[in-house]
Amino acid sequence: MASPAADDYLKTVYAHTEWQDAPITPSVLAAKLGIAPSSVTEMVKKLAASGLVSHVPYGAVRLTDAGAERALAIVRRHRLIETWLVREFDYAWDEVHDEAEVLEHTISDRLLEGIDARLGRPRFDPHGDAIPDAAGEVVREPFVLLADAPLGHQGRVLRVADTDAELLRALEALGLAVSSLVRVTAGGIELDGAPTALPDGAAEIVWLSVASQ
């Protein structure tokens, strides 16, 4: 069942467990997609019938091997396009998500390969999310959510979630970016050695390396 809608479901299921372990439920899937729960239930049934997800009533939705392969392909498209927009067209990191949502369903495989080659086969997008390679392989190092990091923990910023454009802009104004060095303090963080107070919600969308490098 090749369709943009099906791809969006698979991509969302994949992304939900990429940086944490709790599986996604139909109600959470509905909230993330902004779709009525009844519509999600119907689509999940179709995806299950197509062998792309496994699901039991009221239980979690999980990708099958075929579903994971499909999800990784569309995630690769999305993240390469985001990287392309930032590097080649000077988009800010808070501006690329919606553009990529449209373009990921329209560009050809040939153009995608050209973008990947032109960018030098990047491994991460502007937010620090891993870009799967053409074979679907993903490289990611150990991480901890900033909100869960103990006092004194020091690490590089590995990823900043792109779910809140306003919060992304606020973090950018503070100078926080992927690869910034952060130390967790009682008052917030030290960012590249400077004491910094974080805006509300920031600790829930920033991931750090387990050890500074």
Rank of each mutant, 00 (worst) to 15 (best):
T196F: 05
D148S: 07
A36P: 00
I205H: 07
H97D: 13
I205R: 08
A92L: 12
V178L: 04
S39E: 10
A66Y: 02
L112E: 07
E82P: 00
R110K: 11
G136H: 05
I35P: 01
A194D: 11
A71V: 03
E88H: 07
K11L: 14
H55S: 11
A22S: 14
D109L: 07
R183Y: 12
E82R: 03
Y58H: 08
V160C: 03
A135R: 07
S27Y: 12
V182F: 01
I81T: 02
A73D: 14
A73G: 08
A211E: 14
L151D: 10
A71L: 04
S3T: 09
L181T: 04
G114M: 13
V40P: 00
E18C: 07
Y9I: 04
T12F: 13
E18I: 09
L181P: 00
K46H: 09
D164A: 12
P37W: 03
P122H: 06
L167P: 01
D7F: 00
A22I: 13
V102Q: 09
A203R: 10
L158W: 02
V13W: 06
H153R: 04
R87M: 11
H127I: 14
D162H: 10
G201I: 01
R123G: 10
V13G: 01
E141D: 12
A49F: 10
D200M: 14
L181C: 06
G59E: 04
Y14H: 11
Q20I: 02
Q20L: 04
